[in-house]
Amino acid sequence: MHSVVCIKQVPDSAQIRVHPVTNTIMRQGVPAIINPYDLFALEEALRLKDRFGGTVTVVTMGPPMAEAALRKCLSYGADDAILVSDRSFAGSDTLVTSYALTATLRKIMESMPVDLIFTGKQTIDGDTAQVGPGIAKRLDYQLLTYVSKIVDVDLEHREIRVERRAEGGVQLLKTTLPCLITMLEGTNEMRFGDLDDLFRAARYELKVWDRTVIGIEDPETVGVKGSPTVVSKVFAPRPRSQRAEIIDLQDDSPKNLASTLLARMFTQHPKLEREIAKRAR
């Protein structure tokens, strides 16, 4: 069984701070991590390998530094890792990202057929959840998003059953391999890699593929040029027309602060006072 897991290296958003004066983000010293949602995809692929044997390949499209994220995946037990990196990819939107990743997957399939493609449900930086569906459509694979559980895999009949989180409930779905799964968060827990894998990961010669290796001839089909969406402006959110009415009486007690707030709020918003009074009953 051959699973390919698509991952992304992202800045650890939990450690990002916004500069209090300039309102821009302070990236310095923010560590890069594997997109946390992708770890659920990788762990699920590793579990299938534990059960059925086979190979887990991890793929990422990104700058050269994304190599670190791939090595981390190898240390968890992934077998092979491919970094797809090319200057012309800079500024790619989700449509182009799925294009380049699909070209990469096709290249992988030339040497080994793929049974399952995994992605996380979305990234923590872009938050779009569009790349997984994009790859599935381009490959004409069945798409299973928000999978909470792989119920079983029948390799002989090439069938898989999964539970999928739908809006108001859970769907039990059956489909055929190969297919693409986007894994829901919280569905498993990433293992600790063993020492052998740790050493192997450090030494492993991972593959670095550029645009031409994956067969994308025209640089205008990727990056900013190839992307249908363009960013027309970046701006700071507008403050409300009036800044907050600040209740900040240096020497006043919290008790007085609270009653000042209520008094002002209820005078200016009588409807809110009635709403809260309803709760007295």
């Binding site: 989700t94 449509l95 938050d127 779009t128 569906p133 459509k137 798409l143 809006e167 249908p228 969406t229």
Partner: peptide, 23 residues
């Protein structure tokens, strides 16, 4: 941008090769 809407939007946009802006 529900689970259904995201699943469908990403697939339709890719099939049509058009731009999609999330959220």
């Amino acid at each position: 941008a529900s689970t259904l809407g995201r699943d469908l939007a990403g697939s339709v946009a890719t099939t049509l090769k058009t731009g999609l802006v999330a959220d």
